[in-house]
Amino acid sequence: MSWSDKGQRIRVLLLKTDWYLCFGLVFLACVLIGLSAAAFKLNAVLNDADALPIEAVAINGERNYTADQEIQVALQDLMQRSFFSADVNQVQQALEALPWVYQASVRREWPAKLKVYLIEQVPVAHWNGDAWLNTYGEVFDAPVKEGIPNLPSLTGPEAQGKSVLTTYQQLGELLTINGFSLKSLSLSARHAWHAELNNGIRLELGREDSMTRIQRFIHVYPKLAAQDKKVGVVDLRYDTGLAVDWDDAQTESR
């Protein structure tokens, strides 16, 4: 075979190689375009609220203070999205922004439902007049609702809610087992404790040894009750003894 024949054969092979390469590239481009178009179409369908709407929201959990209408308003905009495009984290945040909701968990349930589990705040005390304390001693703001039980009134520095609640529970337990009921407890800016019982008696407990001072009051109260006078304030800020302020007269018992 001459060199010219060999050169011609090489050119033919190169042309065939180029043709296969071009065909392969065109085929790959078609596949990529097709996949992109399919992905675009799928994305459009998944985000189409008319094609895949959220048909229902199932709310579970005990609710005493959060109405269905409040939940509907909170989720109104989010419900305009499709089942797949709805962000469950945003739904959770919208629900937890409701004043009486403590915690919310949200998950999708095929084919068109969101399942929500709500945990409400459990108020255990009024805090500084217009707020509440929950069972963990956390402060929260919420409107007054029907069905809230008669709760004690606690006051103190903003960051001391948990401390005040703990002290209230300790003192309240001691008083309750001795026939008294603690109506309110206050911690001043100087960290002095002031208490009021349901019978109207006010107790000045000072900064320390509040449990010991409450026990002293319980021990001496039968003697105070035997008097033909109404007890107003009992000052227990003494190492021993106490001072009594009667409603109709003032005297001291030491």
Rank of each mutant, 00 (worst) to 15 (best):
L15C: 08
Q160I: 01
N134L: 05
N64I: 02
E204D: 04
A195F: 02
L25Y: 03
G156W: 00
E204G: 12
I201C: 01
G24A: 14
W193N: 10
D130F: 04
A249G: 14
N134R: 03
R63I: 05
Q8I: 13
M211A: 15
W19R: 12
L171T: 06
D48Q: 08
S105A: 10
P123H: 08
F23Y: 08
V233Q: 02
V244I: 15
A125F: 07
I177M: 11
I71C: 01
Q8V: 11
Q103M: 05
Q215F: 00
N134F: 06
P53V: 12
E196H: 00
V45L: 15
L78P: 00
G34C: 12
A37D: 11
S253I: 15
L133W: 05
P123F: 07
N60G: 14
N128C: 13
A192I: 00
Y102G: 07
G200Q: 02
V31C: 12
D248V: 00
A125M: 08
L174W: 07
K183T: 02
Y238M: 10
A104R: 05
F27E: 09
P157A: 04
E173G: 14
S188I: 08
A29S: 12
T135L: 09
E208A: 11
L42S: 09
R108M: 08
H191K: 11
G137C: 04
A142P: 12
S4V: 12
E204C: 06
N89P: 01
V12M: 09
S105Y: 06
G24E: 00
W246I: 00
W19Q: 11
R237E: 06
C30H: 03
D77M: 01
G24V: 02
Y117D: 13
